[in-house]
Simulated assay, not measured.
Amino acid sequence: MSTTAASVALVPSSFEAQFFNFSQLQKDQTFSILSIDVDPKLQKLCGETDYPIECLTSTIPFLDENVAINPCLFSNKTKETLDKAFELSVNPPPSRLFLSCLETCIDNYNSILESKKKILDAIPVGDANQVSMELSFNMENVFACEDTFKEAEIESSITELNSLLVKIITNNIIISVDMINF
C-alpha cells in the first residue's frame, strides 16, 4: 500500500519556519511532523481530525507545558476574526450595507466567544451533548456571517478567516466529542 505526502511550510507567530509532512494515512497510522518536537498525542489527535494542518497550526502556537488541549482553542481565531471585522468597520468607513453585514458578523463572533464558558462548564461533568451543541451553534454563527454577505451580494473580506474558523470548530467537535473520554 502506498501513501502520498505533501509538505507545507508554516510560520506561526511564535515559531520559526516549520515544515510539516502529512502523509495520506491508513486508519491506524499517524502523520509525521518534521523539524519540531511535538507531543505524539497531539500528532495522533490532529491526525484523526478532518483538518490536521489547521489543527496543528491553531494549537501549537498556544501550547506550552501548562496548557492543555481543550475544545475552546477556537476562541483565539474567533478573537482574531472579530478584530478584523472591527477594523473593517472603521477603516475606511464602509458602505451602510457592508457595515450592516459586519455588525451581524460581530454579533455572531461575540456569541461564539460567550459560548466558551458553557463548553468549559460541560467538559468536567462529561456532557458531550452540550459541548457538541455549543460547537455546532458556533459553526452556524460563522455560516450566518457569510450568508449575510451572500444575501447582500457583497464580497466578504473575512471569508478566509471564516473558513479557517469553521475548520477549527469542526476539529474541536471531533476532538471533544469523538476523542475525549467523558
Results as ranks from 00 to 15, higher is better:
65 E>N: 06
82 L>S: 06
132 S>D: 05
129 N>L: 09
151 E>Q: 06
61 P>S: 13
118 K>L: 10
80 E>T: 07
94 P>W: 07
72 C>R: 04
59 T>Q: 07
110 N>E: 14
115 S>D: 10
137 F>T: 03
67 V>C: 13
104 T>K: 00
114 E>Q: 15
65 E>S: 05
81 T>D: 03
45 L>E: 05
127 D>L: 08
150 K>V: 03
141 N>H: 13
133 M>C: 05
78 T>C: 05
83 D>Q: 15
64 D>E: 10
105 C>T: 10
114 E>R: 15
42 L>H: 08
129 N>K: 13
109 Y>P: 02
123 I>G: 02
108 N>Q: 14
102 L>T: 03
127 D>T: 08
82 L>D: 00
97 L>N: 14
98 F>V: 06
64 D>H: 11
144 A>W: 01
137 F>Q: 00
143 F>S: 09
74 F>Q: 01
141 N>T: 13
136 S>H: 05
50 D>M: 10
152 A>Y: 13
56 L>A: 12
118 K>H: 03
66 N>C: 02
83 D>W: 10
61 P>T: 14
52 P>A: 07
122 A>Q: 01
67 V>E: 15
143 F>D: 08
133 M>Q: 07
84 K>Q: 11
50 D>Y: 04
112 I>T: 04
146 E>T: 04
51 Y>I: 08
145 C>T: 00
92 P>H: 02
113 L>M: 13
83 D>N: 13
43 Q>V: 15
129 N>W: 05
95 S>V: 05
121 D>P: 06
90 V>N: 12
129 N>D: 11
78 T>E: 10
100 S>D: 14
150 K>T: 08
84 K>T: 10
89 S>R: 06
145 C>Q: 01
90 V>I: 13
81 T>M: 08
138 N>Q: 08
107 D>W: 09
96 R>P: 03
54 E>Y: 06
150 K>F: 07
101 C>Y: 03
62 F>V: 02
45 L>D: 01
113 L>D: 05
63 L>Y: 12
94 P>I: 06
153 E>Q: 12
113 L>H: 08
136 S>K: 11
61 P>Y: 11
154 I>T: 06
142 V>K: 03
102 L>D: 01
117 K>Q: 15
114 E>G: 12
72 C>Q: 03
144 A>C: 11
